[in-house]
Design a protein around this nucleic acid. Structure first.
Lengths: 191, 191
DNA sequence: CTGATTTCTTAATCTGGATTAAGATTTAAG
DNA sequence: CTTAAATCTTAATCCAGATTAAGAAATCAG
C-alpha cells in the first residue's frame, strides 16, 4: 500500500497518523486480464486506486458498440466518479485490461474520513478538480480536433499505455472506428 | 443577495452566521446585453453566481468559429471552473447574453473560507461533483446521440432558455451549424 | 506445434452533417 | 416609420469518417 500512501502524500500535506488511519480503510483486490470489475446495473460504491495494471471504463450502446470513456494505469484512480457520486446503478463497465491490483475504499468509509481526517475532504476536492479539468480538456479536444490530432494527443498523454491496450479500445477512446485508426497510423508512418 | 443565500442553504447545512460571513465576500457586478465578462488571455480569479440574466462560456477556434461550452441563467454558476482552478489564462470568453447581474467571490477569499467556514469546502466539493456529473453526461450524450437527439435533450434540460438565446449559440452548444439546427427544427415541426 | 479465435489492415462505398451561397425575416438604431 | 445590421432559413454541393466486406497477422487453447 506504499504507492497509495506516497500518492496521497504528494497531493496534500497529511501527517503520518492520519495517512495510516485513512489508508487502513482500503482493501486490496486483484483481477485477471479481461476480468470485469464492475458491470452495468451494479452500484459503484468504491473509489479505486490502481496499484498495478491497466483498467478501462466503457459504455455499451444499444447496438453493443463499446465507447471507452477512461483508461487508467498504475498510480491513477479508476474514474467512474459519475456513478460513485450519484449512487445510481452504473451503466458503465469497468474492466481490467491486464492483470490488475487495485486498492479500494467504500463510500461510507470515505465519508467518515471527511469528518475524522478533514484533510481528506481537501484531497477529494483536489482530485475532483483535476478530474473535471481533464474531462473538460478531453471534451474540448474532441470537438475541436480531427481524429488524427486526437490520436497524437493521446500518444503524448498516455505514453506506453498505447502498447498495453488493444487498438480497438484506443479507437473507441478516440471515438473513431478501428479501421479509421488503422488508416491514421498507416498515414503517420509514411510521413 | 438573498437568492445566493437560499441557494447555498439548499445545498449544505450552514448556520446563519457562517452564511452571512461567507456571502459578505461576494461583490455584485452588472453587465449589459452582449457585454463580455471575461476575455481570452485574462485570468479568471472569481467564482460567479448568476442572480439574473443569461451567460455563456465559449471557445473561439483559429478560424474564429465559436464553440459554446456552457450556458447558464438565474441561480446557476458561471462554469469556467477549468481556468478558475488551473489559474491559467483563460482561452475561453464569458459573455452576458442578456442584461445580467452576478455575484462573485475571489479565489483568495474562497480559500480563506475553506479554513474559516469549513462547511464551504463541502459546498465546493458538492458543486464540483455536480459539475463533473453534468459535464460527463453532456460528453457521453455528445458521443452517443445524433444532432436531433441532442437538440431534444437540450430543450428538456434548458426549458425557456432556448427562447432567450440566439439560435446560432444553441447550435454551437450542440456542436452543429446554425443551418443544420434550422433543418432539424423544421423537420420536428412537420411531425 | 496446430487449428481456432481474436485483432488488425486494406479498400470500396455510403452518409450525417459541414460548407457555401443567397434570400427571408427579425431586431435595433436613427 | 425606415434603413441597416443581425439572425434565420432553404438548398446545392462536398467531405471526414462510418460501414461493410474480406483478407492478413497475432494470440491463445488444447
Amino acid at each position: 500500500m506504499n504507492n497509495l500512501r506516497k500518492h496521497i502524500d504528494s497531493i496534500i500535506e497529511i501527517d503520518e497518523k492520519d495517512l495510516l488511519s485513512f489508508t487502513s480503510n482500503f482493501q486490496k483486490k486483484s483481477y485477471l486480464k479481461n476480468e470485469n470489475i464492475l458491470l452495468p446495473g451494479e452500484k459503484n460504491d468504491c473509489l479505486m486506486y490502481i496499484n498495478t495494471g491497466v483498467v478501462r471504463v466503457f459504455y455499451t450502446d444499444s447496438e453493443g458498440k463499446e465507447i471507452t470513456i477512461h483508461i487508467g494505469s498504475e498510480d491513477m484512480w479508476v474514474n467512474n466518479l459519475y456513478y460513485f457520486f450519484t449512487k445510481r446503478e452504473s451503466i458503465l463497465t469497468i474492466q481490467a485490461i491486464e492483470e490488475t491490483v487495485i486498492y479500494q475504499i467504500r463510500r461510507g468509509d470515505l465519508e467518515k474520513a471527511y469528518t475524522n481526517q478533514p484533510v481528506i475532504e481537501t484531497f477529494i476536492r483536489l482530485k475532483l478538480q483535476r478530474a473535471f479539468i481533464s474531462l473538460q480538456e478531453r471534451t474540448l479536444n474532441q470537438i475541436t480536433s480531427t481524429a488524427e490530432e486526437r490520436y497524437l494527443t493521446f500518444k503524448q498523454n498516455y505514453g506506453d499505455i498505447e502498447t498495453r491496450v488493444p487498438q480497438y479500445v484506443i479507437a473507441s477512446y478516440l471515438n473513431i472506428t478501428p479501421e479509421h485508426l488503422s488508416k491514421i497510423r498507416h498515414r503517420l508512418l509514411k510521413n
